[in-house]
Computed example of a mutant assay.
Amino acid sequence: MKKVLVLCTGNSCRSQIAHGYLNQLAAGKAEIFSAGVETHGLNPGAIATMLEDGIDISGNTSNNVDEYTHIDFDYVITVCDNALERCPVFPGAVRQLHQNFPDPSKFKGASEEENKAEFRRVRNLIKEYLQNFVDNNL
């Protein structure tokens, strides 16, 4: 079974959303991990937006990438430029992929509904990217 790590800055939002989708999209094909180059705790907006799409990530934890340096990953997917710049080197034949997604937790809309809409927009971008990843790599 393939091992996939999704990496972002704080493992609170984008990588958690990606982790949730990959658990669903790559079920039986890959073991999924997520981490941050820092840990910021799970973002409530990420939890809520994923629940709207039928995926519960509320039991996930915010992990630091250093916890996984002993794992031979097949893929490391960085989902923000900061994580790409700070990503450690992993041993073995790991394939690194990168797609910079906006951080919905940094969006400051004029209303709560605008903030929720940004979470949904980023969630959908991540979902589409990962569906393509799974279809072409796993």
Rank of each mutant, 00 (worst) to 15 (best):
A48C: 04
Y129Q: 07
G10W: 05
G59I: 04
H19N: 14
S58C: 02
G36M: 04
T78Q: 13
N115L: 01
N124D: 15
N132A: 05
N137Y: 13
F119N: 06
K3R: 15
T49L: 03
A93S: 12
V94P: 08
G54Y: 07
F119R: 08
M50A: 07
L138Y: 13
V89Y: 07
R14C: 09
G10A: 12
S34R: 12
F107G: 05
T49F: 03
E118H: 10
H98Q: 06
E52Q: 14
P104G: 09
D103T: 04
D56K: 05
L25C: 06
K106I: 04
C80F: 08
P44R: 09
G45Y: 06
L5K: 05
H19L: 06
S62C: 01
N132F: 04
L130M: 07
I47Q: 11
D81S: 13
E52H: 07
S111I: 01
C87W: 04
F90L: 03
V76H: 11
N115V: 07
D66H: 10
D56P: 06
T78W: 11
V89W: 03
Y75E: 11
K106Y: 11
E67V: 00
P91D: 10
F73K: 04
A117V: 01
D81G: 15
D56S: 10
N23H: 13
G59M: 06
I47H: 10
T49G: 05
Y21Q: 08
N43C: 04
L97K: 10
I17C: 09
L51H: 13
L42V: 15
V37P: 13
F133S: 05
K2T: 03
A30H: 09
G59K: 13
I57K: 12
V37C: 10
V37N: 13
E52P: 02
H40T: 11
C87R: 12
A46L: 08
V79Q: 13
V76Y: 12
A83D: 13
S111F: 04
A27F: 07
Y129F: 14
N132T: 12
I71V: 15
D103S: 08
Y129K: 10
K127H: 14
R121G: 08
L5C: 05
L97N: 03
T78I: 02
P44E: 13
H40E: 14
Q99H: 14
